[in-house]
Write a protein that binds this DNA or RNA. Sequence first.
DNA 1: ACAGTTACTTGACTAAGTCAAATAAATCAT
DNA 2: ATGATTTATTTGACTTAGTCAAGTAACTGT
Lengths: 311, 311
Amino acid sequence: MTIHHPPGKERIDAVRAFNRFYTRQIGLLDEGLLKSSFSLTEARVLYELAHRDGLVASDLVRDLALDPGYLSRLLKKFEERGLVEREATEADARRSSIALTAAGRKAFAPLNRDSHDQVQALLDKLPVAEQDRLVKAMGTVQRLLGDKAEPKVPYLLRPLQVGDIGWITHRQGLIYAQDYGWDETYEALVAEILAAFVKSFDPKWERSWIAEREGEVVGSVFLVRKSDEVAKLRLLYVEHSARGLGIGKRLVEECVGFARAKGYKTLTLWTNDILVSARRIYEAAGFKLTDEERHHSFGKNLVGQNWNLEL
Amino acid sequence: MTIHHPPGKERIDAVRAFNRFYTRQIGLLDEGLLKSSFSLTEARVLYELAHRDGLVASDLVRDLALDPGYLSRLLKKFEERGLVEREATEADARRSSIALTAAGRKAFAPLNRDSHDQVQALLDKLPVAEQDRLVKAMGTVQRLLGDKAEPKVPYLLRPLQVGDIGWITHRQGLIYAQDYGWDETYEALVAEILAAFVKSFDPKWERSWIAEREGEVVGSVFLVRKSDEVAKLRLLYVEHSARGLGIGKRLVEECVGFARAKGYKTLTLWTNDILVSARRIYEAAGFKLTDEERHHSFGKNLVGQNWNLEL
DNA sequence: ACAGTTACTTGACTAAGTCAAATAAATCAT
DNA sequence: ATGATTTATTTGACTTAGTCAAGTAACTGT
């Protein structure tokens, strides 16, 4: 089976269709403003002022992509109506920080409430599970199109939760099918290993590390006990989208550290020679190749390798 | 472990944040139009005219949410510039169907190309896998907010593909954790069953059915051979979002039909008494409860049931 | 047939946004 | 420090985009 990536044109058209769709969607949401005395742009400015402190005109110009002249007049009008106050900043006499007055907040409140209610009405039409999907999908769009502001925490490690072993099986199945053409028996092997891990899990001697980034699983590794002296590292993987953050290295380091702390003498692992980037991580961590054997698995001819690290 | 549904307020705020974000996004995309001689609204009208035939003014008013008077003048201007032609419809003399002329198509082409290129440039900043995620997320948003135009094919059944067994494990793990509080050992059981299914799969006697809706897995069922005479139905599930379409019933019917066709004498299954909606499906299909036993599994006290259907 | 709609048009506006030029206060490079 | 540049904001002079209400002609249902 091959994984289907739509050709570029199809993706571009899909994005354009979404833009048309959302242009209309925003138009519909704006209608809610008609009964207020504010335009969409005014409402956007008020929103920013209500939610952020110490704003200066140029911030608004940049963040809302407004014409400076237009904004200047708009703020002047707000000031005349007593909705905002401007105070010159100490550092730079050209700029003044803009803040809503009590009257401004009072004028904004119904606007804000209407917008809130409108969105609530929109969401209420969907069952909760779909509301979650919607929010999640919007978050994905925003994150992918956003200014790539890297999250403060690039990733975090946590133990296994419900849903993880299925998810990891799913992703590993797809990734190895996509990258190396392995068939569904690899996915089945992952499922089997993970099922056994959960069933016979011994927290004293074993552990899992799930790497999560912005709420999504982007990598994992498992350490299982083979004997009093030997632990095995299993199923290391990192999502393509999360490569280059050192997650693979970190996962292996965690394993090694845990194995040492528990007093294992040897940490062993099995992999295949074609998995080059994983191999580099193992080498860097001090693993030595002990033996190789040809095998036919997952629909391919492969060369399996055992690696050991003496602790 | 409980599954976290953000409270309503959080979801509403997330949607509002997305609206603000996309308002800006669309603003940025519109800047591309500045160098053309068309406004955003004009471009939207031209786009519709270029892509749909036999449009009438009121279609545009409805679909693009325009003011009729504004559109009327806009079309008049287009007509004067020779970009569109209007022809009275036979059925209704008030309406006339609007079409781009050759000159209109020529004027639209660079506009269209610019928009295409702009989106392409946007997408090119992302790796292909993320482009796919973006398109998929946009599709989800559009579908959930859209006019609920039910797809023509409500669902389709297909056999197992790479990625499915992990996905099904993931979803079943989460759903049963969410609905009944079962722990991760249930997910492990699903993984184990599915791994075994793939490993020992005998296409002559066994089969899987995956229900897919708009490209997403929404349900599944598996039939495995226990002996020459007995087949077992396993792991029936349907996503909450896809309930009410008769998918569960259909999956069981497919199983029963297959078992009959293969000459099995008995179709058996194991379930738990709390799974009420599944039980109804089994009863409707003619299954009889043969025995029950209390057991402690998945972190709960449960009553397991065996059901049989004599074929 | 005729009351009520619907499809579109026109007139009379106003709000919204643009563009260029001006001003004043920073910053930068000697 | 000094002059050249840049940045932040304002102002003037516009154009465009969009709204609202009223009007006309053609259709629909009873």
